[in-house]
Design a protein around this nucleic acid. Structure first.
Length: 544
DNA sequence: TTTAGGG
DNA sequence: CCCTAAA
């Protein structure tokens, strides 16, 4: 059985969709967290199943787990914990469930309702409240959504019973830290390829799933999204029962080629070169002399827990090392600045050098080189290739010139980070920080008159509700025109046709075309209205 | 995946 | 053009 789980993180942090596709599933709906999620099947097999939880439920770890468990072991219980991005989530803990929702929610527990999705009784109170820094109104919409209340209750044990999940006692392992969605790439995808265990069709997958109870998802930050392959962090899951533990001790090899220590200096233009040198020296002295400590960042997030293993943080994974950043930081005795704060650059005035401690740490960045990654890495499941799931916009957007940092001499080596401004520096010493994470807007491509003509013609024929057909009919070879584009263009055409010619912009569309637009629009609107009436009367008849 | 609409 | 709910 194959499953692809797709986690989309919208640019604006709202909620998430999980898309599950698999073949040969008989499931009509899923029960989870006291809610019944219909599974929509599209066409014959392979069934395309959508789990439209986007508005209903904020994304939770449990849902990943559920989705995966459904996709892989339909009969099996939800794992009790999940290793994700190197972090261990106890799935019985509501807080953890909500953690991955990106700090959208803070939750305290309240267990009078079993609608929380936790099978574990508890005594605290649950309250969902948005994280203060979230301002998106959509969040509030979700909050206000009747969903939480409307959720049909689920009898205990109806789907996931307490027995399916073994007891978990290490609440302390739970992550108290709230993560901001800001810490995540704007768009992230999780791909998962798992096969049911009974389906012993290959060492690779079955090993990936079952033989590594301590291994979680590995993250590969290539492309515009992160690809994760996963195995559950099962504590006593079905999966781990099947295979013996493997405890080879493997090593992750790093080679740090250079540290870059950005120093910002303000110096009058009348200053001499000598004084410039001195200033630089002072600044560097200030940094180095004040004592240094090493910071470790993963995907731009600082890893503060020194007790975590590389394995746990996910750093043991080859591809994860790309996302590893090391920094030299001055040892500041003060409390560190808030995490999400923009770190100010190290600004040293040459006239009056400030004490170093005034500046937040993040002065330097490192380039680490992955010489060779541990041999312990899970054999990569088949769908490792990230590329296939990354939008390829090659036809539309000429790739920006900046990313030429991949030096061919050493494919494994991260090259020195290009000059960064303070902002970028403060963010992440990661290779593809800005561009690949923020999926760039497609380049604008105004419709030519001939395109408009083709569009009008097709719509005249097909109507305004069959944009896919319009695309196929009239724009099949125009790769950059999607049916959504066509629909949008029609919208603007209608608008254009209604406004006065003086208000129109861009290449003028012949009035005759615009007239046809209005005609077609009127005609098909009428058709739609008729259809609706017909449907209404039909339903009425059914009710009577 | 496609449709439909708001942003 | 983007985003995404809903089907």
């Amino acid at each position: 059985m194959q499953a692809i789980i797709c986690l989309r993180m919208p640019r604006i942090h709202s909620s998430f969709n999980i898309l599950i596709r698999w073949r040969s599933s008989q499931l009509r709906h899923l029960r989870f967290c006291g809610n019944c999620f219909p599974l929509f099947g599209y066409d014959p097999l392979p069934a395309h199943i959508r789990w439209p939880m986007a508005r209903a439920v904020p994304f939770t770890m449990n849902m990943i787990a559920l989705a995966i468990s459904v996709a892989t072991f339909v009969e099996n219980p939800l794992p009790s914990s999940l290793l994700f991005s190197g972090e261990l989530f106890n799935l019985d803990n509501i807080e953890n469930q909500l953690l991955l929702a990106g700090g959208l929610w803070s939750a305290a527990r309240d267990d009078d309702e079993n609608s929380s999705g936790c099978t574990q009784p508890s005594t605290t109170k649950t309250a969902f409240r948005p994280s203060p820094r979230i301002g998106d109104r959509r969040i509030r919409k979700i909050l206000a959504s009747k969903f939480w209340k409307a959720a049909p209750k689920l009898k205990d044990g109806e789907y996931f019973t307490a027995e399916t999940k073994p007891g978990y006692h290490n609440r302390k392992n739970c992550y108290k830290r709230k993560r901001s969605l800001r810490d995540y790439p704007l768009k992230k995808r999780i791909l998962y390829d798992g096969r049911s265990l009974s389906n012993s069709d290959g060492g690779i997958t079955s090993e990936g799933i079952s033989s590594s109870p301590r291994k979680g998802f590995s993250c590969d930050a290539s492309g515009s999204g992160a690809t994760l392959h996963g195995a559950f962090g099962t504590t006593s899951g079905v999966a781990s029962r099947h295979t013996p533990f493997q405890s080879r001790d493997s090593h992750v090899k790093l080679r740090i080629r250079s540290f870059k220590v950005p120093v910002f200096i303000e110096i009058p233009e009348t200053a001499t070169v000598g004084s410039l040198k001195r200033s630089v020296m002072e600044a560097v002295d200030a940094i180095l002399g004040g004592g240094l400590r090493v910071g470790v960042l993963l995907q731009g997030k600082k890893i503060r827990d020194d007790n975590k293993t590389l394995l746990q943080t996910g750093l043991a994974h080859n591809n994860k090392l790309d996302a590893l950043g090391l920094s030299l930081e001055p040892t500041v005795s003060q409390s560190p600045p808030p995490l999400c704060n923009e770190d100010h650059p190290l600004l040293l005035s040459c006239n009056a050098p400030q004490p170093l401690t005034r500046y937040p740490p993040v002065p330097s960045v490192v380039h680490n080189i992955v010489e060779q990654s541990a041999a312990d890495a899970l054999p990569d499941p088949p769908s490792t290739s990230v590329g296939s799931f990354v939008e390829s916009d090659h036809d539309s957007a000429p790739s920006p010139p900046d990313m030429s940092d991949k030096s061919p001499m050493d494919s494994r080596a991260l090259v020195a980070i290009p000059e960064m401004d303070a902002e970028a520096l403060a963010v992440v010493p990661m290779r593809k920080s800005k561009r690949s994470e923020a999926v760039q807007r497609r380049i604008r491509r105004p419709f030519s008159v001939s395109e408009v003509e083709a569009l009008v013609h097709a719509v005249e024929k097909l109507g305004t509700g069959r944009w896919r057909d319009v695309k196929l009919r009239a724009f099949d070879n125009a790769k950059h025109r999607t049916y959504v584009d066509l629909k949008d263009k029609w919208k603007t055409l209608v608008h254009t046709a209604r406004i006065s010619p003086q208000q129109r912009r861009g290449e003028p569309v012949p009035q005759v075309l615009l007239d046809r637009v209005l005609d077609a629009h009127a005609y098909w609107s009428q058709q739609q209205a008729k259809q609706q009436l017909k449907q209404q009367s039909d339903t009425c008849r059914l009710l009577l």
